[in-house]
């Protein structure tokens, strides 16, 4: 499903060059639930962003669903992200100006769908994460766990084949973390969604199919 070949990422500022990813190759199968671990600053988020086509690698090749991404235009890339990918960010990144329901509808806005359809789909997604009673709230009126669940609803509402989650349980207590984890596991099992998750938590990582460890931009396991 996702194929990374010799990915390198260099961050250049005026004074220093940081090699964030140093030659990583990775094959992720369809329907796989993969977790990525490693010390802070080792390049986990960078790698995930590259997989999610949010950032470009300095070197190397990415194929998603057998398609070479490198020559995609901005328009095509946007459409591709919209249809195939769903993101869950560590710090939620909900839009505070919009209500919960509108936040979840967001990915559908960039598709051809009617307002009614969008509402039905978004409500269903929120139901899946157990938040159907908070549709009219604004994100700032929710707890951290609730926000993360809204973010998950947003990631799954478009029914993407791949979900990329960057420390989805990082800001939550273990009970809430387990709940979120269960949602992801069910998604993987029932819908066959390919999931890549960055985590700091060994116990979470052990619930997934495969674990990849990074150190200083290189894969060590």
């Amino acid at each position: 499903m996702i194929r990374l070949q010799n990915i390198e990422k260099v961050y250049r500022t005026d004074t220093v060059e940081t090699l964030a990813i140093n030659g990583i190759s990775l094959d992720i199968a369809k329907g796989e639930f993969l977790s990525i671990m490693g010390p802070s600053g080792c390049g986990k988020s960078t790698l995930l962003n590259i997989m999610g086509l949010l950032d470009e690698p300095s070197k190397g090749n990415i194929k998603i669903d057998e398609q070479d991404i490198s020559r995609f235009s901005d328009q095509k890339l946007a459409k591709f992200r919209n249809q195939k990918l769903g993101f869950i960010f560590q710090s939620y990144h909900l839009i505070n100006d919009l209500r919960v329901l509108d936040n979840v509808e967001l990915p559908l806005l960039y598709r051809t769908s009617s307002a009614k359809e969008r509402k039905v789909l978004a409500t269903a997604a929120l139901e899946k994460v157990g938040l159907s009673n908070r549709l009219k709230h604004f994100p700032t009126q929710l707890s951290g766990g609730q926000r993360q669940r809204v973010a998950i609803a947003r990631a799954i509402v478009g029914n993407p084949q791949i979900i990329l989650a960057d420390e989805p349980t990082g800001n939550l207590d273990s009970a809430m973390g387990n709940e979120i984890m269960d949602i992801l596991i069910n998604l993987n099992k029932n819908e066959g969604t390919t999931i890549v998750m960055v985590t700091h938590d060994e116990s979470m990582a052990h619930k997934t199919h495969r674990l990849v460890r990074l150190f200083d931009g290189s894969q060590v396991q």
Partner: peptide
């Protein structure tokens, strides 16, 4: 609202949109 822009782009908004 740059974070909003980031989110919208991540979920499929093109620059034009």
């Amino acid at each position: 609202r740059s974070s909003e822009i980031g989110v919208r782009k991540a979920f499929g908004a093109s620059s034009k949109t």
